[in-house]
Amino acid sequence: MSQLTVMLTNPIHPKALAMLDARHRVVTSPDTSADTLRKVAQEADAILVRTLLPGDILDHAPRVRTMVRHGVGLDFIPVDEATKRGVPVANVPGANTLAVVEHVLGLMLLMARQYHRLDQLTRQGDWECRNRLTSFELKGETLGILGMGRIGCGLATLCNHGLGMKVLGYDPFAKDMPEGVRPASVEEIFQQSRFVSLHVPLTADTKNLVDNRLLATMRPEAYLINACRGAVVVEEDLIQALNDKIIAGAALDVFNQEPLPSDHPFMKIPNLVITPHSAALTDGSIVRMGTESVAELLSILDLQKPVNLVNPDAWPAYVAKYGK
């Protein structure tokens, strides 16, 4: 096959870049604004996606044959439009599972033991903070998980078998729950859990799912964790719940607007832990996401069906067009 042009929305790990650069011409977008992405995509034959693409990207990218997600979330790609045009889309759903699971567990431990506050106060010379700040153990506490995909199941298994936590799980598409997980409704999870962790894809059904109604049903000593997509939570409602002490606290890795503006109300809420959409970004997961997504992209360009093809209806048209 002759050399094609592959567009990167963001830089990727050098190991993954070398794999791609050995086969095709690589162009990295200078920034991730919608207009810049549209402009760079005009000459692209394929796109490796690490940021939200504008919904009309394919109107500006007449040569694009495929789009591959450097990660899991497909809300970054207009999959339905790609399918209509015979453009295969793939992702790498297992590459960052362990990283996100460990990140969420770390947030649970942080909030349970208040490590961040203990560190801050101790640095200020307040040794007696150890007697004022309350903490609790995770064993015996209830964890409720919305979304029992790879990450949700991994978190459930770790917390149930490793820490002795009770686990409730909700997923309308899951055929079976992992051992030790009791199926529950969304309402039951919010009412009964000490921790509620969100791991659902962003869809029309999950957008703004967590609102005042659900937050009001949580236990006053409960915590909310969101490491999936910011729009799953109504941010204004969460701000109110935290400020009014409806719940004990929350930890967020994702937001409606990213990067999070420096003047956002979240910045001033003491019972909120925020991280910069970094749950998936360990050294190992970055290598895996990069190399696995490049491998999928190269397979598609070589007319070989990828391991994680998310729109199989596009494949026959793709093969018919480029397999001549």
Rank of each mutant, 00 (worst) to 15 (best):
K207I: 13
D35Y: 00
P62V: 13
D45W: 04
L301G: 07
P93V: 12
H13S: 09
N311G: 13
V100D: 01
Q114F: 02
L109V: 13
Q3A: 11
L303R: 14
C159M: 15
S2L: 09
K39E: 14
L53I: 11
R50S: 13
R130Q: 13
D313R: 07
T28M: 10
L163P: 00
Y318G: 11
L215C: 02
V87G: 00
R23D: 13
L301Q: 09
T206W: 03
V40H: 00
L252G: 09
P276M: 13
D237H: 13
E296C: 04
D211H: 05
F255M: 06
I57P: 01
T9K: 01
D205T: 14
E128A: 15
K207W: 05
I77S: 04
L52C: 12
M111Y: 04
A295Q: 14
L158I: 12
V104M: 11
V79S: 11
V200G: 08
S185Q: 06
D80I: 11
A295F: 02
V210W: 01
L297E: 02
D176G: 00
G55V: 11
D80P: 00
V87C: 01
V92N: 05
A184C: 14
A184M: 12
D171Q: 06
A248D: 04
E221N: 08
P88C: 12
L110A: 11
G144C: 12
G73H: 08
R288I: 06
L198I: 15
L215S: 04
Q240V: 13
E292T: 07
